[in-house]
Structures are given as structure tokens and as C-alpha cells.
Nucleic acid binder design. Structure first.
Lengths: 122, 122
DNA sequence: TATATCGATATACTTTAGTATACTAACAAT
DNA sequence: ATTGTTAGTATACTAAAGTATATCGATATA
């Protein structure tokens, strides 16, 4: 999808249902305490379970397992098992997952301007 | 901030703390069940409390009140009280709040491509 | 006097999200 | 036989998010 043809949120006024759903999809995929750290951890390279765990010091294996499962079910992450001993499981972002960095960039941009705009305005 | 100068999430590798914080700010501002509906409701026009409530059928006044307070504290929404009878309170998006539509546009774009990419792939 | 409007707040509750801690299976190395 | 590694699961818990329902104060209208 190109810039020039991108649908804007404001244009969605007329037929909002599917647009609202799409925005909500995106939000759901990145919502929660650990989703961004996990996605961030996979943004530059594929990683294994324990590797991600080491990369995100405070996450418990329970949460990591649960969130990775969520991300996999939502088509964000691909899980590959290698029959080595001990077993090796590799996680990597899907194409969609990689494209999410465009959204994160916009969030970064907005977040920084918002910090600027809000400094000392309490 | 211009496109050419925009900081990318991937570039943040070297000095991640402030960038991660900015992305998290953005996420926090739009996280929760009612934030997007409320922001959406204010995107085209300022509205009054009861007006928003009618616009978002299933929200309770407790949640609307709480979320509006959150949004106000976070500099997303401006609240203006008019001393009429009965009292009139107007809510409108701040400049930052309006700029959020850029983020929502990206989320819409990604969400739609992700739906396309994920169809029938279960 | 009774009822309605506006913009909420109060109290009690249920549901979802996240934490803490211990444990498992399958093997390999010591 | 014991210990270590991998990638998790099991159980029980606390904390945060959201719901349900009733009520408030100030004022206007019937």
C-alpha cells in the first residue's frame, strides 16, 4: 500500500466498522506489558526462547510463553522447532511483524512530539 | 517533524531508553477498552459529556469520567466548563490529540494489510 | 411539590492481566 | 547416579481493569 493511496482514519467516518476493527487489531497485537519488549527483541534478529528471556530480564517463562503464543496465533511471529538435543526453538517476526516497525516509528514520532508539547505544562 | 528527519525505531538500537519510553507513552495513551472510541468521538468535533456517552452506547458514566480524566491528565483532551444551567462541560482534543490521527492512520494501514496477509492462514 | 437535566461520584462486584514459585520431559555430560 | 540444558507447564496467588447500579447537587420546568 502506497502513501498516496493510504486510507486515513478521518475518511473512515462514512463506513467506520471495518476501519475501527483494523485499528483495534493493531492495538490488540501490541497491547500488554510484554508485547513491545518481545517484538523489540525480535526486530533485528531471530531468537530462541531462553535468549529472549535473557534479553528481557524481568519476564517470567510463563508470560513469555503466553505472549509468544498470542503473537504466533495473531500471525506476528513464526515459531520453528529444530530437533536437536536439547531441543531448539526459534522465534522470528513474520512479514507483518516486520512491517509493524512502521507503526512503531509513527508511535515514536508522536510520543516524542507529545513529550515536547507537554513539558512543564502540568 | 519532517519525514526525512524522522527517527526510526530500528535506529533506536544504540540508545533505546528514551525511544522505548516515547513509544510506550503513545501506547499507554491509547490503551484500554474505551480510549479509541472516545478519541474517535472527539476527532471531528468537540463534544459534551452526555453527548459522548450517547455516541458510545455501552460505556458507563464511571468509565467515561475516568477515561476522560486520564486523557486530560495526559494532555490529550482539553476540558472546558461553562457556567450555564444545567452546567455545560465541553471536551475537545488538544493539538497533540489531533496529531494522534497520524498514528491511527498508520495503525489502520497496518491493520488492513495484516488482515489481508492473515486471511485463511490459520 | 415532583420530576427532569447535566456531569458526574460512590460502593460493591466480576473479570482479565500479570506475578511467584515450583516443576516437567527429553536427553547429554560428568 | 547426579547435574545441567532446553523449552516450556502447573498451581496458586495479587493487582489492575472494567461492570452494575444507585446516588448526588444545582437548577429548571410542569
Amino acid at each position: 500500500m502506497e502513501m498516496e493511496n493510504a486510507i486515513s482514519f478521518k475518511e473512515a467516518k462514512a463506513c467506520p466498522i471495518q476501519f475501527v476493527l483494523a485499528v483495534n487489531d493493531t492495538l490488540n497485537v501490541i497491547s500488554g506489558k510484554w508485547k513491545l519488549p518481545i517484538i523489540g527483541s525480535l526486530l533485528f534478529e531471530k531468537r530462541r526462547f531462553t535468549d529472549i528471556q535473557r534479553n528481557i530480564p524481568k519476564i517470567t517463562p510463563r508470560m513469555l510463553s503466553k505472549e509468544l503464543k498470542d503473537l504466533e496465533v495473531n500471525g506476528m511471529v513464526k515459531r520453528t522447532v529444530y530437533d536437536t538435543t536439547p531441543i531448539t526453538v526459534e522465534y522470528e517476526l513474520s512479514e507483518s511483524g516486520k512491517l509493524l516497525s512502521d507503526v512503531l516509528d509513527k508511535m515514536l514520532e508522536w510520543g516524542m512530539q507529545h513529550r515536547e508539547a507537554t513539558i512543564g505544562k502540568n
